[in-house]
């Protein structure tokens, strides 16, 4: 260690230039973040200021305009599930205890869809013919966690 000058790491040096590479990185980063947050806000509130409508509200609001997506939440009406043999299209009714909404979904449905306790959230469009065509299905899990009965 015969050298007399020690290299001061860059972090300890005072910032001399106004347009340093640090500053540029920061600006770019911050703009990306603000842009992302704005995008989220747009995504989250697009089409509705609530995350989902109830069945009664959905029927009141009526058909969804083109290019808009809404969500409706309810329970699977008993005995309403119907899927033709070999078909990927499922038809069923959603209910909030009072009003009933006819719905259709193309594709896979998660297991919990068929559970009695599940609240189902459909994401899609309410068509003028009275059927809510859903593109996405989210099954809201029950909030109470109960141990399953030990069998045998």
């Amino acid at each position: 260690m015969s050298q007399t000058d020690t290299t001061i790491p860059e972090s300890a040096q005072p910032q001399t230039s106004l347009v340093s590479s640090h500053r540029v990185k920061l600006l770019v980063g911050l703009m990306a973040i603000v842009g992302a947050l704005g995008f989220f806000a747009f995504q989250a509130f697009e089409g509705a200021t609530v995350y989902y409508y109830t069945v009664a509200e959905m029927k009141e609001i009526g058909p969804t305009p083109e290019n808009r997506t809404v969500r409706v939440s309810g329970k699977l009406a008993a005995d309403s599930f119907h899927r033709a043999e070999g078909s990927t299209l499922a038809e069923f009714d959603l209910t909030d205890g009072g009003a009933i909404l006819a719905a259709a979904h193309e594709g896979v449905l998660p297991d919990l869809f068929f559970n009695d306790h599940s609240e189902i959230i459909l994401e899609g469009r309410y068509h003028a013919d009275g059927v809510f065509v859903s593109e996405n299905v989210i099954v809201k899990c029950p909030s109470k966690y109960i141990a399953e009965e030990e069998s045998g």
């Binding site: 899927r83 896979v108 449905l109 998660p110 297991d111 068929f114």
Partner: peptide
């Protein structure tokens, strides 16, 4: 885990 084993024709319960 459930649904995504079976693409079409779901079993109603696990």
């Amino acid at each position: 885990v459930g649904a995504y084993d079976v693409p079409f024709g779901m079993q109603p319960a696990p």
